[in-house]
């Protein structure tokens, strides 16, 4: 019984991770990609959890702690340094200036615009 459960759960997690990769490739902005990366990390944590549950081995449990921590730090860092982006990645009606003042400036992170 546990083998069937493991196969089904791993298949669901793999398809979810694949969808996250699709959004990471498509995502119009950096924030969408960071959200998709969060989903991917959690799918990885879930896959390791399923493996630990199936084999009843406890060595992989510390990996779960580390992975959940790293995923949080990644998405918070990307959100903290999210800058106004070049015009092709913004809404067409957004008239606020980009981070470097000009509409065609490079998308360097703007440290003055923090939360």
């Amino acid at each position: 019984m546990m083998l069937v459960v493991g196969i089904v759960a791993t298949a669901l997690l793999a398809v979810g991770a694949l969808f996250a990769v699709v959004r990471m490739e498509r995502g119009p902005s950096m924030l969408d990609r960071s959200v998709a990366f969060d989903v991917l990390t959690t799918a990885l944590v879930g896959a390791i959890a399923v493996e630990a549950a199936l084999s009843r081995r406890t060595e992989s449990i510390p990996i779960l702690v580390v992975l959940s921590m790293v995923g949080f730090i990644g998405s918070v860092t990307v959100a903290r340094f999210a800058a106004a982006e070049p015009p092709k990645e913004r809404r067409p009606d957004d008239t606020r200036p980009t981070s470097t003042g000009g509409p065609t400036g490079p998308d360097t992170p703007d440290l003055q615009e923090g939360p």
Binding site: L31, D38, V76, A79, R80, A82, A83, A84, R90
Partner: peptide
């Protein structure tokens, strides 16, 4: 994390 991503999206016009 969700709050920070959301507020960054609002701030940068997403």
């Amino acid at each position: 994390a969700a709050h920070m991503v959301g507020s960054a999206g609002l701030r940068t016009g997403k």
